[in-house]
Design a protein around this nucleic acid. Structure first.
Lengths: 157, 157
DNA sequence: TGATACTTGACTGCGGCGCTCGGGATTAAT
DNA sequence: ATTAATCCCGAGCGCCGCAGTCAAGTATCA
């Protein structure tokens, strides 16, 4: 269960952009320095963000990037998907049951699917604005912290 | 955002064990064949499961493994943690703010933390029994499928 | 004209996942 | 007693892809 740097950097950079953006574009050099990310690597990442329509670019001197939409209209899910192809959990379900154990759906098929959906749903509910305001903490709240063996009470009934 | 084979195989194997277990132990050769996993690799995985107290082993001929507890007392989270050290999303928060951007918490610090908690909470609510019964689909339900800015209303009632 | 910045694509080190191998210890069947 | 299953353990290793670099080009502004 791992998160790679591309997704992480992308969200960090976008958050930085939302914060220091305001009016006019922000050059990558500034972001790279503030967030301590290699400039050349950031450039790669922003190409993808641009192609996904999440940022607009301005070339030449005093150029840079700015958000294509408001910070409350850009979700973390959108960023991660733009930068880092699949949020899927396994090749098992790309189409049909290809990667499953030969015959039918593997026993855990539905589990991974549910997990993937769950993560995506979570990230889809967090916007850049939330990140800046430290909201994600609150959003995660309704979860029981973990492993509470008592009366489990899994929703419904 | 990726899931490695160790965690995946472990859950598949444990599900298989729960299904074909019943009474007496199940040899790894059987699981390996049914789930199409390399035997030698499975052995590694089961060492960890055993040390974590999730399975009991019986050596010698007609030996094998069986669940140490009932299928409804073993969560997917427990399995994944036994096999695959951290479910953490980044080194950023191992202790304190080590990996953060020099100074203070990085902007996305809380986000990754919330994501990690969220995933763990989800996996902690799914037991082996649920997996066998195809429940994980239902468990994931209380999530609104995505980006629903309306009244959030998660879990509870 | 030069400095600043984005654009693009090719290239690469190397860490670690995913797996194999070889041996050993234990137990049950015959 | 021997053989055949099984678990137990540690070392080793190929190869892929992540993370990052490099080089060359284009646009824009002062």
């Amino acid at each position: 269960m791992e998160l790679n740097t591309k997704g992480r950097y992308a969200v960090m950079a976008m958050a930085d952009l939302a914060k220091h953006g305001g009016h006019g574009s922000v050059p990558l050099t500034a972001i790279a320095e503030r967030q301590q990310i290699s400039l050349a690597y950031l450039e790669q990442i922003f190409q993808r963000l641009r192609r996904a329509g999440l940022v607009d670019s301005a070339r030449g001197r005093s150029g840079g990037y700015q958000l294509a939409r408001g910070p409350d209209e850009i979700t973390v899910a959108a960023i991660m998907q733009a930068v880092d192809e699949p949020v899927e959990m396994t090749r098992c379900m790309l189409d049909g049951l290809a990667g499953c154990v030969g015959s039918a759906k593997c026993l855990t098929h539905d589990l991974w699917r549910a997990l993937g959906d769950h993560i995506l749903a979570f990230l889809s509910r967090v916007t850049l604005r939330d990140v800046l305001e430290g909201e994600p903490g609150r959003i995660a709240m309704p979860m029981l912290s973990a492993r509470e063996p008592g009366p489990v009470e899994v929703a419904a009934e």
